[in-house]
């Protein structure tokens, strides 16, 4: 059982960059919200790995707070998606620049 701490952080970095690339590539707003979830989860992985490396419980506490923040953010984001769908009739974010204020 000698997993280096760097491998756990490597996983977090790769997941974060996949989420970032997806956020930049996709134009569907549901996929963009999913990519934000991936990035938040990657940050949580980094916290838990660092907490496990030092044997402290602070990393897990921070993960719980990230979880609460992700839940609040998803509820508001999904309500915004429903509003955008009502306004524009599609889930494409390029249609959102026709809002006129």
């Amino acid at each position: 059982m000698n997993i280096p701490m760097e491998y756990g952080l490597l996983l977090a970095v790769i997941l974060f960059c996949i989420g970032l690339a997806g956020l930049l590539i996709r134009r569907n707003i549901i996929f963009m919200l999913l990519c934000i979830e991936i990035m938040l989860n990657a940050a949580g992985v980094a916290f838990v790995v660092a907490g496990a490396a030092w044997g402290q419980a602070e990393g897990q506490v921070m993960f719980i707070f990230i979880l609460a923040m992700a839940a609040a953010e998803v509820s508001v984001g999904l309500a915004l998606i429903i509003q955008l769908f009502k306004q524009t009739g599609s889930l494409d974010v390029t249609n959102a620049n026709k809002m006129k204020g």
Partner: peptide, 22 residues
């Protein structure tokens, strides 16, 4: 863009030796 960001973070991360986790 994402690959450049990842390469920077990997360079910082893997520059020093490995620390095994207890």
């Amino acid at each position: 863009i994402a690959l450049i960001l990842m390469a920077e973070m990997l360079y910082m991360l893997l520059g020093e030796g490995y620390h095994p986790m207890p």
